[in-house]
Design a protein around this nucleic acid. Structure first.
Lengths: 342, 342
DNA sequence: TTGAAAGCGCTAACAA
DNA sequence: TTGTTAGCGCTTTCAA
């Protein structure tokens, strides 16, 4: 069928093993034969068969990316393509392929990962989320299969290579921004409490309140799914309170957009009547109305770092567990203003 | 290392080939041995090595998905995760893996595809876009490598299996909606004219105008990149005209969001001052303010159909080229109203 | 520096 | 219905 290593070998007048050595850029090979073989490869349009290669040396030059697509989590969120872009850039530059596995349920996700691992389809895996008690992670840990995660592991933090933002500090700083603007009734809207990222951002929010001597009110905290109905419920819940908040910290830009629309429906204007800050700085945060004051978490970099770590780890089994903190910075835009209700 | 087919064979007291046959669900095998082998597989925790399998029978059980990530095209657009979801569902259900290849430039994309094809990594490929004079497509055609595309091929329409909406009709109907509302100065904003989808939607728009006896004004047509600056320029261009439009047909929801924001910045309200319709019906179209009247193109289905066709084609080389038209329907929401300027 | 040969795990004739 | 055996295309000792 296609041209094989043998064809190249005989064309170049060498043994297949020699050709193999030039492919692998083996050091002990004379420049002369190397050149000759390379020429033959080019002339004949030779391309190594990765399957044969994988079989022989038990490495696939591919990484797996696992994302959840259930309502509450990643998909439909622009976070997602952006992080893929980061992963893809590194993978491509190091000649790795990228397998994607999505699943709606935990079970489907586990199946997908098992296929990748058991089938020897990938050398390592990136988890695009961090969730409490994740069966996928437990599986990987048990099989001692190389993986890195984006986000902070819920436990075993020191054993798991992960890349994350300092979401606690991010939560604190963005909340402080609201406090500095004179807000003292500040609510928090976040996603599922199974997601570590939600917990961390919440924590930061609480620390900021506490340090400012503000009360931490349970009724100012609402957890909701990303999608539409959720935004509505959250807003409804907060604004039926006797003393509704004048500021809200929201854990995700996309949620924020939903919330702002709900607010307007209820006749509340952002930022005139209520100030809002959020997280991620996806593309939309900049073009939506009003443009969002948000924590830029550098999504692309999260992806590229995770890929880099994973590939290091795959290439060197003894690479120690790492923790990479991607710095954030706050984008000040127009969704906040000084609290006039004082 | 891991347990192999030989281990299973000896444990079950049969030959490796027998085990292989039960894996492949070969018809001529006695229920008794089948059961025995299956038990052994389960007991030993056996999982076939896909690489070895690929090597032996030259099929990978994997499909490649190619998307462009350059500014003007897919990424950052929620279209994207949604179509992946559709592909992934089918792939998963038929036990195929999914390789993803992104690239910023045509060249990078071609490289990615070459790696998939030459490396024998996938059995077939889905192109998530249709572009004039696409080197990737030409490569695939030349190699006679199985592929399907989402969107309409620019030429060789009958030779290429593709799944698409009837974008011409969609463009026409959505434009008619504006006409019926009394608008007679209707502009069109679209993406790159290299994309077939842009051309088709534009065509539909023009047909509608023509049939309604309305003039097709060149200065009412602007092409722009999806991203922010683009929206600004487009709006600026249209509203410096002597007779600015009272309605706009925009080829993509995400662009629409940008345009609406620009409009508001210029003091124009949607739909009070100007009516807007667009395409895709991504999640945001529903939650943005105002909710968008848009053509729902059924993105998920585009993905799942493309995957289905591809896998059919991969399994049967002689499968004829198909053309699948996914129906659309118009979601009437709040971005349009009757033209009051008459 | 190079070649010969065994083997990675599986499939697919061909035989029995 | 099942077993035997030769590959699939590549890597990797071991020897030369």
């Amino acid at each position: 069928m296609a041209v094989t290593i043998k064809d190249v070998a005989s064309a170049a007048g060498v043994a297949p093993s020699t050709v193999s050595r030039v492919i692998a850029d083996h050091p002990r090979i004379s420049p002369a034969t190397k050149k000759r073989v390379k020429k033959a490869m080019k002339d004949m349009g030779y391309h190594p068969n990765v399957n044969a290669r994988s079989l022989a040396n038990r490495s696939t030059q591919a990484i797996g990316v696992v994302m959840s697509s259930s309502a509450d989590k990643a998909l439909q969120n622009p976070f997602f393509p952006e992080v893929l872009r980061g992963i893809s850039a590194i993978a491509h530059s190091l000649d790795y392929s990228m397998l994607l596995s999505t699943g709606g349920t935990d079970e489907e996700m586990l199946e997908g990962v098992e296929r990748m691992v058991y089938g020897n389809r990938v050398d390592g895996i990136i988890l695009l989320y961090s969730q409490i008690n994740d069966p996928v992670m437990n599986f990987l840990l048990e099989k001692e299969f190389p993986f890195t995660m984006i986000g902070k592991p819920f436990d075993r933090v020191d054993e798991i290579t992960h890349v994350d933002n300092d979401n606690i500090r991010g939560g604190k700083e963005i909340t402080n921004h609201l406090i500095e603007l004179g807000h003292d009734r500040i609510a928090f809207i976040g996603g599922s409490t199974d997601l570590v990222v939600t917990l961390d951002r919440l924590k930061g929010y609480q620390v900021a309140l506490q340090e400012a001597g503000l009360p931490i009110r349970e009724d100012y905290r609402v957890h909701t799914e990303f999608l539409k109905s959720g935004g509505r419920d959250a807003v409804h819940q907060l604004f039926s309170l006797e003393n509704p908040p004048t500021g809200i910290v929201i854990a995700d830009d996309l949620m924020t957009i939903g919330v702002i629309n709900m607010l307007e429906e209820f006749g509340m204007l952002v930022p005139e009547n209520i100030s809002i800050v959020s997280f991620n700085n996806v593309y939309l945060a900049e073009v939506t109305r009003p443009p969002l004051t948000t924590v830029d978490i550098h999504i692309y970099e999260l992806g590229s770092q995770a890929a880099k770590c994973l590939i290091e780890k795959v290439r060197n089994k003894d690479e120690p567990a790492k923790r990479i903190i991607v710095p954030f910075n706050i984008k000040h835009r127009l969704s906040t203003q000084r609290n006039e209700t004082l």
